Each structure stands twice: as structure tokens, then as C-alpha cells.
Measured scan of single mutants.
Amino acid sequence: KKKIKIYIENENGEKKTIEIEVEGDIDEIAKELAKKYNVKIVKIEP
């Protein structure tokens, strides 16, 4: 498992940072999160 930080922006332009532990393809997981929460991924840090 890797701990990563995902910087997101919602439709109101509010920026947030999510810190999660992931296993597998980080890009795939980030895309799923973006779709699920309707946010834009700004940056992903390993």
C-alpha cells in the first residue's frame, strides 16, 4: 500500500487535499474518485 495525496477542485473552485492509502493503479483510483465526487483532479503526489 502507498500513501498518496490527491489535490482536487470542486465545481465551486474550492480546493482540497485528500490523503489516502491505495493499492494498485493510482491513476485509475483517482479517476474513480473524481467521477464519484464530481471533482477535478489537480495533482497527485506519491
Rank of each mutant, 00 (worst) to 15 (best):
V39N: 04
K16S: 15
V39Y: 09
K36T: 04
K16H: 14
A30G: 03
N38T: 03
E11T: 09
I29W: 12
E32F: 06
E14D: 11
G24V: 02
K2Q: 14
L33Y: 14
K2I: 14
K43S: 09
Y37E: 15
E11P: 09
G13P: 00
D25M: 04
I41Q: 01
E45M: 09
K1W: 07
I8F: 15
V42D: 03
P46R: 10
G24A: 04
K36V: 03
N38E: 05
E23I: 13
I29E: 03
E21D: 09
D25Q: 05
L33H: 01
G24M: 03
G13W: 02
K5P: 00
Y7D: 04
N38D: 06
I18Q: 01
V22F: 12
N10V: 07
I41K: 00
K40P: 04
I18T: 01
A30F: 09
K5V: 13
E32W: 11
K3W: 15
D25P: 07
A30C: 12
I29M: 07
E45P: 02
I4Q: 01
K40D: 05
G24P: 01
D25F: 04
A30Q: 03
I29P: 00
N38K: 10
I29Y: 14
I18K: 01
Y7M: 08
T17D: 03
E9N: 02
I20E: 01
A30M: 15
K3A: 09
E11Q: 13
I44P: 01
N38M: 06
E11W: 14
K36D: 12
K43P: 02
E28S: 11
K43I: 10
K43G: 10
I18H: 02
K31Y: 07
E14P: 02
K15I: 15
K16Y: 15
K1E: 03
I8N: 00
D27G: 08
L33C: 10
E21C: 14
K31T: 07
K15A: 13
D25H: 05
V42W: 01
E14F: 10
I20C: 12
E45T: 06
G24D: 03
K43N: 06
I8R: 00
K2S: 09
K35A: 06
K16Q: 12
E28W: 07
D25S: 09
E28M: 09
I41H: 01
E19V: 12
I20P: 00
E28K: 11
E32P: 00
T17N: 03
K5R: 13
D27T: 09
E32V: 07
I6H: 00
N10E: 11
K2E: 06
K3S: 08
A30N: 01
I26M: 06
G24C: 06
I41Y: 03
T17V: 14
A34R: 06
I41V: 06
K40H: 11
I29K: 04
I8L: 11
D25T: 05
E19Y: 11
E9T: 04
Y37D: 14
E21P: 02
G24N: 03
D25I: 04
N38C: 13
I26D: 03
P46G: 09
I26E: 04
K40T: 14
K40Y: 04
E14K: 08
D25N: 11
I18E: 01
K3V: 08
K35C: 07
N12R: 13
K2C: 11
